[in-house]
Design a protein around this nucleic acid. Sequence first.
RNA 1: GGUCCCUUCGUCUAUCGGUUAGGACACAUGGUUUUCAUCCAUGAAAGAGGGGUUCGAUUCCCCUAGGGACCGCCA
Length: 455
Amino acid sequence: MVITRFAPSPTGELHIGGARTALFNYLYSKNQNGKFLLRIEDTDKERSKKIYEDQIINSLNWLGINFDDKAFYQSKNIQKHIDIAEKLYENNFAYKCYCTQDELDKKRETAKSNNINYLYDGTCRELKENRDLPYVIRLKVEKNKKITLYDGVQGNIEIDTNTIEDFILLRSDNTPTYNLSAAVDDNLMNITHVIRGDDHKINALKQILIFQYMKWKIPKYFHVPLIHSENGKKLSKRDNASTTEDYKKIGILPVALRNYLLRLGWSYKDKEIFSDEESIKYFNLKNIGKSPSKLDFERIKSLNEFYIKNLDEKILIENFILYTKFYKKNLDSNSIDIITKNINILKNKAKTLEDIYVNSSFIFDYQQIKNAVNSKNKTYLNQFLEEIKKLNSYDYEKISNISENIVKKNNIKFKDLGQPLRLILTGLTQAPSIKDIIKILGINEAVNRINYHIN
RNA sequence: GGUCCCUUCGUCUAUCGGUUAGGACACAUGGUUUUCAUCCAUGAAAGAGGGGUUCGAUUCCCCUAGGGACCGCCA
């Protein structure tokens, strides 16, 4: 059975690249009728925060990326990682290193200032005797050997082991390092396919060495090129578009972000829009692209617009209410009622949930404009007012005729009536058509708002 | 500096050696529209450069250039 995993470290909010990695893992496991596991890599006690663990899980839920079983916490498995380090040491695949951090820092610096490549020089590699000093455990990387990473995305990558240093497995405080923990846990969790960011390519080689020494079955690796910011640089927290939270708070729908992420670095012929079912059905690993891709905010927005227009309106309203609750304000039930009834009008201008909020604000956040109309306009508005007063509620279709007649009668342009009318009804210069505004507000409220301004 | 990876319209991408190099977003123009949008139509827009291999190269190989990742007792 195929088992994939997403293994974030809880040192920050869910990153957009992480979200894509999670999505790919999720989709592939579902496509193969396998399992998708979540492993929180919280072995860095300093930087790992509980609130980020929760945030990552919440974001995955929000995106509809559901993991199987319970979330797995790497910190709970530390003893097993230590056991393996000791086993490697006993089998002479690893050794104790007594070099201090100061010594290593110095060597690193001299190497850097001489512009030469730094690798741990193996000072302690051949030490025979034990010393009564703090030590780390390093893996003994066999020299002068070629090792191959069979990467499902990048092809076979052959590398000389001389360029891989004897990396640390166990720190001097006896805690395991990332490469040890990751390898041990991937083995323990029976991970069959490791799909992750490009930045782990070298780590894969290191982890493979551990797998080989332990005679474990090596998983298949797929290293996905990273996502770059719009200016081509590595995505950073300062880009304001780097975490799923950044998108959530401006009113991007989870379906839209998911669809966008799916098509970033992956494709299926000419297809752009994927339902959840389709994405599971069509997802495969061989269509993952080899080159890094840039984020395109306009594309995200346009996809979001598509989903706002095409999503089931009930679901759209659910998303909208949750959105306003989190990021705007709790709307009263009357306003929600009005918005729900008129969502087909209000959603038409929106690219984001925030747009829907702004577009509907004249319902719950109406601001009267002082001196909005001049005396000439008042005459037309008065005529308009008298006519709509005569309307039965739900007789909104006649509104167009009313304004048409007034325009003809006074020999004016529609603009002369429509512009001030829209402004006093909504407090906004851009809003739905006059007919729709009155329909949304109801005759009474419309009459009130006009009255206020012409008297 | 070392190791490794990548390179098709501005962006995401399609192309299993033979195509007028296709689609989507963005952009431009026109139409619809009682504001703004929407919507519809049309258009402009690409194989980094140089060598090979081949009857034929965007596709395969090499070199150059550009971009990226990694090089922690972080993950």
